[in-house]
């Protein structure tokens, strides 16, 4: 198939970007969106042009690196997938496809379609961990009983790949779905309960400092999430934050 592309080109964070028109011919319907971008880049390199910068890593939907806002949605029109799992058979011959970077103040554009998502890492550093002794005396994981329902809910929250699609989809560029998944996966388990109050307070503070917007329960995040993180996690975050704020000693 032949496609017209409108791709955001931006030299660096401080320069002004714009949408540029490109054409790719003979794209296989079986190729992934990233492979189509590779094809375009090889043509650009052959012509001596600057290839389009975009993030990618595992190309099997688990690393969360591939971003891109495709035709008005993060990771494109197919639900429950990352961009690497989006196949060109979802498009028709002659289609015009808009390809833009994830847009948020907290995600500055590095170049073209690649954005800096380190703000999410800093939220994790603020509290998304469990403090354990790693000096060698490892405890047996099964020594502490965990109810099956809690384990399942924690596991579901832990499937968050930290891609930032929720931020890109949210009209407020809020990171609440991400933060709620990261808070939930730990606070549901006995090992994570010990630091639960500090964790939720510190992670929400960091989220606010990074300049993400406020959650207004629009729900676009959960609809666009490639791994199906649900809004129940945001409700849990709201509960945890309320109880931590009311009962913390600080």
């Amino acid at each position: 198939m032949d496609l017209k592309l409108k791709i955001w080109r931006q030299a660096n964070t401080n320069s002004k970007g714009s949408l540029k028109d490109y054409q790719v011919k003979n794209v296989s319907a079986d190729s992934s969106f990233l492979e189509m971008m590779d094809q375009l880049n090889e043509e650009l390199i052959d012509k001596g042009d600057d290839p389009v910068a975009f993030d990618h890593d595992c190309r099997e939907g688990i690393c969360g690196m591939c971003s891109m806002h495709i035709n008005g949605e993060p990771h494109g029109p197919e639900s429950g997938t990352t961009t690497c799992q989006l196949h060109m058979r979802k498009f028709k011959d002659g289609d015009t496809i808009y390809v833009e970077p994830f847009r948020a103040k907290a995600f500055p554009v590095l170049k073209d379609l690649a954005v800096d998502r380190a703000a999410l890492d800093r939220v994790i550093q603020a509290g998304g961990f469990v403090s354990v002794n790693t000096s060698g005396n490892t405890l047996d994981a099964n020594a502490i009983p965990v109810p099956k329902a809690d384990a399942d809910a924690a596991f579901n929250a832990a499937t968050c790949i930290g891609c930032g699609g929720c931020v890109a989809a949210c009209p407020n560029a809020s990171a609440m779905l991400f933060v709620s998944a990261k808070v939930s996966q730990l606070s549901l388990l006995p090992q994570g309960k010990v630091e639960a109050k500090e964790r939720v307070t510190n992670m929400v503070n960091q989220m606010d400092l990074e300049g993400f917007g406020n959650c207004s329960n629009v729900g676009a995040c959960a609809e666009e999430c490639p791994v199906g993180i649900s809004l129940e996690n945001i409700a849990r975050l709201n509960r945890e934050y309320l109880s931590a704020s009311l009962t913390s000693s600080k």
Binding site: H69, A104, K105
Partner: peptide
């Protein structure tokens, strides 16, 4: 303010 640049699509 959290999204200074809008999406074209």
């Amino acid at each position: 303010k959290a999204r200074p640049e809008r999406y074209a699509s």
